[in-house]
């Protein structure tokens, strides 16, 4: 198993007398992209602020590379690179001067390292311009440069795709995958967008109202909530239809929903084959509806905010 880079245990936080984070626990390993998923107001940003030392936890333990953040702040935080909300930089300084500021604070960073990171985020041409002349995308890249400058073990990003255009999001996604897979970095990403987590992350912690309600592999969660097909079949044939579907390899589960409706969990690309099998078996199929289950449905199910097996979400799936 890969090294545990970030370990959070029993994290608690109250603002005033109102507890807003209760008992958040999870681990993040080297080389993985870890999603931190929850609706706005679930406590994502508050948790991140505690992870990077901007806010103090009322209880619980945060360890980075095995070092307690609360007890040995400088040693622990030296392994963290982060962008909390927007990348705020000194607008009246140039990009290079900004990086030099952080280099002096982190220590042990050579001018060559600054050159290297500037090339890495592709900002060579603008690095000696003042940051106030930068576009949002350029600021984002400079923000990533400052976060990676001191070679952290973990990169913490709070809603990184906020304000980016689709091309920018795609670019960021590839960039993050590259960091995790090639550089072995742990990447921690918070988001309220389920599709984003689904596309970028290996594992995910889902939080709601200051509690972690589920932690697991994104793939496993997706399998558990695989695509569904609704079959409308006359009640006289429904028994037989169920038997036929059960014999098919592509179908993982079948159950009768109502007198004329049958549900199967299966690979959606195999729908026509399944239909063929039913027709060959003499079943008059009256209707087929496919449903793609996304993390969105999963989320609604887990938080009890929606129907039993998610919202109707036919057709288009962004991938």
């Amino acid at each position: 198993m890969a090294e545990t880079v970030l370990s959070v245990k029993g994290l608690q936080k109250a603002i005033g007398k109102k507890p807003i984070i209760h008992d958040i626990t999870f681990d993040v390993f080297a080389g993985e992209v870890f999603g931190f998923l929850g609706p706005n107001g679930a406590g994502k940003t508050t948790t991140i602020r505690m992870l990077v030392g901007l806010a103090k936890a009322d209880g619980g333990d945060i360890r980075i590379g095995g070092i307690s953040l609360q007890e040995q702040f400088p040693q622990a935080i030296a392994q963290v690179g982060c962008i909390v909300e927007n990348p705020e930089l000194y607008k009246f300084l140039t990009g290079r001067e900004n990086l030099e500021q952080f280099a002096r604070m982190s220590g042990g960073i050579t001018p060559e390292r600054i050159e290297e990171i500037v090339r890495f985020v592709d900002l060579e041409r603008a690095i000696d311009d003042k940051v106030k002349t930068y576009s949002l995308g350029m600021r984002q890249r400079l923000g990533i440069a400052q976060a990676l400058l001191h070679r952290p073990k973990i990169l913490i990003l709070d809603e990184p795709t906020n304000g980016l255009d689709p091309a920018g999001i795609r670019e960021l996604r590839q960039f993050i995958r590259k960091l995790a897979e090639e550089e072995g970095l742990a990447v921690f990403i918070s988001s309220h967008l389920l599709s984003e987590i689904e596309m970028m992350c290996d594992r995910v912690a889902i939080i709601s109202q200051g509690k972690v309600i589920s932690v697991g592999l994104v793939k496993e969660l997706m399998e558990q909530f695989a695509d569904q097909v609704d079959w409308t079949i006359p009640s006289s044939h429904i028994q037989k239809a169920e038997e036929i579907l059960r014999t098919l390899q592509a179908v993982t589960d079948v159950w009768v929903v109502s007198e004329e409706c049958l549900k199967s969990r299966m690979d959606i690309e195999k729908v026509s084959e399944a239909n063929q099998a039913l027709v060959n078996g003499g079943i008059p199929v009256m209707g087929i509806a496919t449903k793609t289950v996304t993390l969105e449905d999963l989320f609604l199910t887990l938080t009890g905010g929606g129907g039993s097996h998610g919202a109707e979400h036919s057709g288009a799936r962004t991938k």
Binding site: Q75, I77, E88, Y90, F102, M105
Partner: peptide, 14 residues
């Protein structure tokens, strides 16, 4: 007010 405190306080400096 400019938000740069987030960068200032997340460095290895007390």
């Amino acid at each position: 007010s400019e938000g740069t405190v987030k960068l200032l306080l997340t460095r290895p400096v007390r």
